[in-house]
Design a protein around this nucleic acid. Sequence first.
DNA 1: ACCAAAATTGCAACAAAGTTGCAATAAATG
DNA 2: CATTTATTGCAACTTTGTTGCAATTTTGGT
Lengths: 144, 144
Amino acid sequence: MIRNEQYHQFLRQCGLKVTSTRLLVLDVLMSSSTALSHGDILGKTRGSRLDKVTLYRTLDTFIRHGIVHKVASEDRNWLYALHPIDRNNSVVRGDHAHFICDHCERIYCLPLQTRNSMPAPESEEGFIVRAHEFRLHGICPQCH
Amino acid sequence: MIRNEQYHQFLRQCGLKVTSTRLLVLDVLMSSSTALSHGDILGKTRGSRLDKVTLYRTLDTFIRHGIVHKVASEDRNWLYALHPIDRNNSVVRGDHAHFICDHCERIYCLPLQTRNSMPAPESEEGFIVRAHEFRLHGICPQCH
DNA sequence: ACCAAAATTGCAACAAAGTTGCAATAAATG
DNA sequence: CATTTATTGCAACTTTGTTGCAATTTTGGT
Ligand SMILES: [Mn+2]
Ligand SMILES: [Mn+2]
Ligand SMILES: [Zn+2]
Ligand SMILES: [Zn+2]
């Protein structure tokens, strides 16, 4: 695998030890265009006896190191995804949209087009906004 | 209770039978400025031997009848809330923001100020947007 | 190539949130 | 007040995620 060497470098850059679990999970996440649940990932790693607890911990480590973020899905569990990449191929760590397909339930991370026109809630009520998540519902390209 | 008569009428208007459970749950939801978890609601009804399954079913009924909506919380369980009311005291059934306090974890339903300027994701990619949820993170009025 | 320290992993047991089937109970209608 | 129909409570179960601990693996230095 030629990719493994890249992942190896990448993990070291993040200050993480390189383990087969981490290389495996990184590859699964890299290969997906949508956010994946713990169960999805475990399913895609059958054959490599990866324990569910280890996977939870690996994902958590990735989150703590800013490699991955998680999104609450509509059916009350977490989906994990790498940070999305915008048109200039640069990683978007901050605000981006989550598109939830009402047909297949897949969740996509999409960079936002109009960065400047964010709707704000009624302002005088004393809510201090620090970050936001924009969730879009509809039909994804795969489903029409 | 003078409120009970109003709730009674309201439930009948929705085509629902009036039961003590429904009156109770409706009152709890009406009395809260934030979205409540199943556990929160159960906690506020101690004394009235309300079963957890009955509460789940009652909330589900309210959702199916458009009385209540649910929001995925940061700790992966559902929060339930009546639809918010805007400045003109009219019920907002569609888009509104969810403000999540990073300090107390409470979730508030807030009507949006600028209805017209919604950020859209990259358009040509074939995503058909039908609805959206705007989630704001920050500090709520109670916490500063 | 080998060693020691520190981090990672697998296993078992556990906890919390939510669901299902079914019998008992309560609400609405005439 | 009797009948029909929806609602409720209970027990058992599923799914998702967590905790403690011992065994294994990684890494940096010899
Ligand atoms: Mn995302
Ligand atoms: Mn809401
Ligand atoms: Zn789809
Ligand atoms: Zn707060």
